[in-house]
Design a protein around this nucleic acid. Sequence first.
DNA 1: TTGACGTATGACAGCGCTGTCATACATGAT
DNA 2: ATCATGTATGACAGCGCTGTCATACGTCAA
Lengths: 339, 339
Amino acid sequence: MEKTRKTTLSDVAALADVSPITVSRALRDPEKVSQDARARITRAIAQLGYVPNPAARALASGRTDVVGVIIPSVSNNVFADVLRGIYDGLQDSPLGVQLGTTRYSPSTEEQLVRVFLSQQPAGLIVAGHDQSPAARALLQGAECPVVQIMEVGPQPIDLVVGLSHYQAARDGAQHLLDMGYKAPAFLGAQMDPRSQRRLAGFRDCLIAAGMGADDPVVTTPEPSSVSLGCRLFADLLATRPRTDAVLCNNDDLALGVLFEAQRRNIRIPDQLGICGFNDHEMMSAAEPPLTSVETDRYEMGRAAIRQIRDRLAGKGHPRGHAVDLGYRLVPRVSTARRD
Amino acid sequence: MEKTRKTTLSDVAALADVSPITVSRALRDPEKVSQDARARITRAIAQLGYVPNPAARALASGRTDVVGVIIPSVSNNVFADVLRGIYDGLQDSPLGVQLGTTRYSPSTEEQLVRVFLSQQPAGLIVAGHDQSPAARALLQGAECPVVQIMEVGPQPIDLVVGLSHYQAARDGAQHLLDMGYKAPAFLGAQMDPRSQRRLAGFRDCLIAAGMGADDPVVTTPEPSSVSLGCRLFADLLATRPRTDAVLCNNDDLALGVLFEAQRRNIRIPDQLGICGFNDHEMMSAAEPPLTSVETDRYEMGRAAIRQIRDRLAGKGHPRGHAVDLGYRLVPRVSTARRD
DNA sequence: TTGACGTATGACAGCGCTGTCATACATGAT
DNA sequence: ATCATGTATGACAGCGCTGTCATACGTCAA
């Protein structure tokens, strides 16, 4: 490993005929440096191809330009959309992203929180409200802004951007009843805490409608997929053949249900109503188009970053501030039963 | 910002009654420290809740425990799978991930390469072979292992894990001809360099079959989606009504074609053959199941990390080593034309 | 003229860790 | 007894930057 002796601040300073501190200031706070010096410094930087060393900056200042993002998984397209929002929100800022995935394990999450906080990040984004007590304590003591995303809930750690999964699912279930379906069921995979809340919303809707005796629910802890939607729907039909509608925990499952119904010549929406969750782009393209509960994952990421940037700029919201992004039921043909 | 004066190596050293250097060694190279000292140090660390400062380590050693990953987009499920492989490959290692997205822009990519390299990463993973000359030069001069993923190609920068998109698409096109389709077309979105290579494979297959005169290709630079598949297919039918098969640049488009065909009562596979690309999980679940060219995105991520870890451990492959993961045509009902 | 104040710049020390070299002692071969 | 070798540990300096305080020089009101 031959060291090429990277150019440093001092090299730039020497060439620009100022002290290193002035260069440092010119980089971070150009206002504070005279036009003249700034011009010479800029030229010297270009000439030497100087690139600052983030580790040195972090060590000296105790801060970094990295936002930690801790989510359960990258292959869930919900989080892919959130990440896209995060990256777009970070445009034209010096901030970068360090990403960690928990695989839905609270202990992994706790470890990631510990590691990320040790890097003294500019901010931290974590998914959900179900951190372990130790992780919560760590986050509570963090010196940087912390944003919990995906869900609004009681007892925020710091900032929150999300929606009520309970209400969203409850509205989805109500929609099925409103459209005249008599025996709706719930299909769920990957039953993480948010999925549990959605299930609770479904159940409470049925109870409120006087249909609480039965509990038409098929779930599995397996990760969600379209194939799994096919299988769960098959299981559902085997045990509850009179089911006439399904509220799916997410859109992948809903798509699987559609395919399985097509295979069995079950007519959508007359014999079976289908409602998904999140309103992924494909839902409107399907044949027939599938009803879903729209959530704005992209905006969730953007808003989270906005919270952090505002806070860093000193004009942010105080602790406990929550943004409820809401949701929107998007009725399509798949639940438009003709009576 | 009240500073709580983090506990440092020296604090641990004092408590364990050794010098700071011994603590440092105990952390990085436990073999080199006596049983006895190690036990005392471990106890002291636990007692003080000591967490190392990565910035200080990076500054002193000139290295970090971060692997930079530069990909075009996170919302493309191809890259989501790759990322999953990367994270799984990083299990039980001290390495973390810093993720950057280029949005398919070479200049953004170049900037990310610059920024990431300035952090002196443990390794760098970049998608594709189409970096700008400046980015290539930077990567060539990098002191860390660099892995180009997705695609095998000429003139690797360092290490490569990928497959031939040209060949894969050519085989997909040949499959359509083999199944008796007479007028296959190509549908493409997001025409990045890899897509261009796939298109070239399609074209060369037709030329080899003596069908080169016509050029049945509909593409758009828009990002891919299921809805876009519907639209491109509609466009295709409008201009080339005699088309009897489509090779899609990816699975999203293929799904869109399926839905649009269903809407128009076009029978799959007899009136229309459909072949996707990547073989995303949903392809086998569709009705009818959709033929696709399988690529192992997950393994691509894992293998890339394996290359880096091996290299860091000193037992890696030399510069220029390429792993061709291949591909596999998975024929399903959507191309099983009955003659 | 004097002092108060604002602006541009610099000196100094130190952030927490590791690379390098040195030291102390034990072991075994000669 | 002598030396080479190996093992466990430590001293020292410094990685590249920034926080803090100090300095030099102007400007303006009294």
